[in-house]
Amino acid sequence: MATPESSDWIMIEKEVDETGHGQTGLAVDAELDLCFICDCTGSMGQYIKAAQENIQSIVTKISGHGAKVRFGLISYRDHPPQDSTFVTQCHPFTENLETMRQYVDTMRANGGGDGPEAVTAALFEALSLPWRPNATKICVLIADAPPHGLEPSGDGFPNGDPDGRDPLEILRDMATLGITVYTVGCEPALGAYHFARDFLCNVAEVTGGQAVALSSAAMLADVIINGSAEEIGLSKLQRQVEEEVLKVQTEARSAGHNISTEASVTAAVASLQARGLTSVQMETDGRMTNTTKPCWGNVLEKKSLAKVKEELGKFAATVPSAEILPSCLRSARLPGPSMPRGYAGASAPPVLSGLSAPTSAKTNLLKTDLISGEQVSRIVQRAQCQNRLL
């Protein structure tokens, strides 16, 4: 396990030299704005307790390595009448470690009502934070339930966020501002929904982040620390990667060829790797996969959640449902504390994402290797969202 005290972390503090070789990362002058978005409903009890301990450790470790770091926290539950306590609680960015500890200590697991939660409201609060223009901007969404307006049943707001906001539009706005979202799916509860895993995958895909499944919060610190290291490193390679992709596209078009984005990325990766360009990379065995990706489209298609839900319904109609109940419902047909509200007992619907249940992360390491095709693709997507590349 890589920690900030390890040699891998020390390596990422080196700057890229003029030839583009070497490694980048948490340089002394780097800025990082890091916001935690955490579900605080009743089903997150044990997770919140562990997350509180880990988040405080994260704050200490990241703050102690030279970067100019600000931390924020957004807690969320649900809209009334599903929950009468609060929808969101927004704690603004702070550089003060003790203030962040106080933020974290406010989190309590309670309430929630139906299965889906106020994820959309929480994302909107995150988008609205005063992000520093030149900072690496990261959100970490910790959730075990989808937003309203996605699931085919068990949703108190089946038409979506009662305030009329669309989470996919919010995510596109976040991508435009350069906010990267890492999603942490809390298993096994997440897998008891039809499309919750795929939603969290889409959140990461749209914003250029990564989606990781955890069965406990024990590895939460590794996801956040290692993911932050990778993102800061990539932000310092961004211009170099964009220039290489643009060079590939310009040369192809000068030769009369119409080159696709995918082909541009492939060619750029080959060139960058041939020059020995390395990057910091978070390596985990808990990465989630979007099993219904065609229904979501790509970031440039600008689909609404309602449109995606319609396409997911058509997709679901083509999938046999008899054998795909999630494991928590196969073993018992009675409500239990690990089952999401709204999906307990014999009336629970079949769960499509149960076809490819992710392996919850057992390892999360920080490594240095040649820059990967996946990293270049993420950089290019961000550049497209910010109108720097076609």
Rank of each mutant, 00 (worst) to 15 (best):
G42R: 08
G42N: 08
G42M: 06
G42S: 11
G42V: 08
S43H: 08
S43W: 11
M44I: 02
M44C: 07
M44P: 05
G45K: 11
G45F: 14
Q46G: 13
Q46N: 10
Q46P: 03
Q46T: 07
Q46V: 03
Y47H: 07
Y47L: 09
I48G: 00
K49E: 14
K49M: 12
K49W: 13
A50R: 10
A50H: 06
A50T: 15
A50D: 13
A50E: 14
A51C: 11
A51I: 10
Q52C: 11
E53K: 12
E53R: 11
E53W: 07
E53I: 13
N54V: 02
N54K: 13
I55S: 02
Q56E: 11
S57D: 09
S57F: 14
S57W: 15
S57P: 00
S57R: 12
S57L: 13
I58Q: 00
V59L: 05
V59P: 00
V59Q: 04
V59M: 07
T60K: 14
T60M: 10
K61M: 13
K61I: 03
K61T: 12
I62D: 03
I62R: 02
S63Q: 05
S63D: 06
S63V: 02
S63M: 08
G64S: 12
G64Q: 13
H65N: 15
G66H: 04
A67C: 15
A67L: 12
K68D: 15
K68L: 11
K68F: 06
K68N: 15
V69P: 01
V69E: 04
V69T: 13
V69I: 15
R70Y: 05
R70M: 11
F71G: 05
F71P: 06
F71A: 06
G72R: 07
G72D: 05
G72N: 10
G72L: 03
I74W: 02
I74T: 06
I74H: 04
I74A: 07
I74K: 06
S75E: 15
S75K: 14
S75C: 14
Y76G: 06
Y76K: 07
Y76V: 12
D78Q: 04
D78E: 06
D78P: 01
P80Q: 04
P80S: 03
P80H: 04
P80M: 01
P81W: 00
Q82I: 06
D83Q: 08
T85R: 09
F86W: 10
F86I: 10
F86T: 03
F86H: 03
F86E: 01
F86L: 04
V87L: 00
T88I: 03
T88W: 00
